[in-house]
C-alpha cells in the first residue's frame, strides 16, 4: 500500500474533555484506501521542543469528503500543541501507515480502552460494510475517559465498563457481561494490561484475536527500528509489521 507525505487542512475540531479531542482533516484530492487500524505520523507545527512526528490512529474516514479524523489523547508536549490547533490550519501527515485489522470473523467483539478506542470506529464501519455487526465493548476508569460513545451506535451492540461505575457496568472490560467466549474473532486496542488480558483470554478459549500496539516510534515507516515489540518471531517493528498483530504471534509479549 503506497504511503504519502502531504498537507491536510483542519476542517473540524471537537474537544471532548481535558484529555481528548479530535481533528477532522481534509485533503484536496481523493484519499487512498485506508485500512482500519492504520495510523498517521503528524508533524507538530510551531513547537521547537517537538522535533519528531507523532503517531496517531485513524479514527474515521469519509471518502466522499476527502477527510479523515484523528482522535487524540493529550499525553505530552506534542499532543498538547496539537490540541491548540484550530480549523483552517494546515497539518502535514505521512500516511497511511502500518498493517491494519484483518476484518475476519463473523461474530466479532471489539474491545477498546482510553485512546485505544480511536481505531475501533473505523473498524466498526469497515466490518459493517462487510455486513458484520460487531459487539463493541469500551472501557475506562470513568465515563469521561470514554470520549466517543454515541458514534458507535449505528454499527453494533455496545457495552461500557467503568471502574467507578459512572457508565455501563462497574469494573474492567474483561469483567463485563458481554465479554465472553461467544465470538469467533476479537479485536482490541487500548492500555497494554487490558490488551494482554483480552489476548490471554482469547488464546485460552481458542478465539482469533488481533491486538493493536502503541509503541514509541520515530519514523513510522520501518527505518529507525525504535518501536519494536518482542514477538514470537523476534523483534518486529510496530509501525510497519504492526500496529495490528495476531495475538498468536505475541505469546512472549502477553506473558511479560
Amino acid at each position: 500500500m503506497r504511503k504519502y507525505i502531504t498537507d491536510f487542512t483542519i476542517v473540524g475540531k471537537q474537544v471532548y474533555n481535558e484529555s481528548y479531542f479530535s481533528l477532522t482533516l481534509q485533503h484536496p484530492d481523493r484519499l487512498p484506501e485506508i485500512a482500519a487500524g492504520q495510523f498517521v505520523e503528524v508533524e507538530v507545527p510551531d513547537n521547537k521542543q517537538v522535533m519528531l512526528r507523532r503517531p496517531i490512529s485513524i479514527h474515521d474516514v469519509d471518502i466522499d469528503n476527502n477527510t479523515l479524523t484523528i482522535l487524540v489523547q493529550v499525553v505530552g508536549k506534542g499532543t498538547r500543541t496539537l490540541s491548540k490547533l484550530s480549523e483552517g490550519q494546515k497539518l502535514n501527515l505521512v500516511y497511511p501507515l502500518g498493517h491494519g485489522f484483518s476484518l475476519e470473523g463473523t461474530h466479532t467483539l471489539l474491545v477498546g480502552g482510553g485512546a485505544g478506542i480511536a481505531p475501533l470506529l473505523h473498524l466498526s464501519k469497515c466490518l459493517s460494510a462487510k455486513g458484520i455487526r460487531p459487539t463493541i465493548l469500551l472501557g475506562g476508569r470513568t465515563a469521561a475517559l470514554i470520549p466517543v460513545q454515541k458514534e458507535f451506535e449505528p454499527y453494533g451492540t455496545i457495552g461500557f465498563a467503568t471502574e467507578d461505575g459512572s457508565l455501563g457496568e462497574k469494573g474492567l472490560v474483561t469483567q463485563h457481561s458481554l465479554f465472553s467466549a461467544d465470538y469467533d474473532h476479537i479485536y482490541t486496542c487500548g492500555p497494554t494490561p487490558m490488551m494482554k488480558a483480552v489476548a490471554r483470554y482469547a488464546l485460552e478459549k481458542g478465539i482469533e484475536c488481533e491486538v493493536s500496539l502503541e509503541n514509541m516510534m520515530a519514523c513510522g515507516i520501518g527505518a529507525c527500528l525504535c518501536c519494536v515489540v518482542d514477538s514470537d518471531e523476534g523483534h518486529k517493528c510496530v509501525c510497519k509489521e504492526g500496529p495490528v498483530f495476531n495475538a498468536k504471534k505475541l505469546t512472549n509479549w502477553i506473558k511479560q
Binding site: 517537538v50 516510534m217 518482542d230
Partner: peptide, 23 residues
C-alpha cells in the same frame, strides 16, 4: 542480531537518543 530491548528511543531537545543496538 535482535538488537536491544524496547524502549529504544527518546526525544530530547532538538534531537533524539537511540539504542537500537544494530538489529
Amino acid at each position: 542480531r535482535q538488537g536491544n530491548p524496547y524502549p529504544r528511543m527518546a526525544e530530547t531537545p532538538s534531537g533524539m537518543l537511540n539504542a537500537v543496538g544494530l538489529q
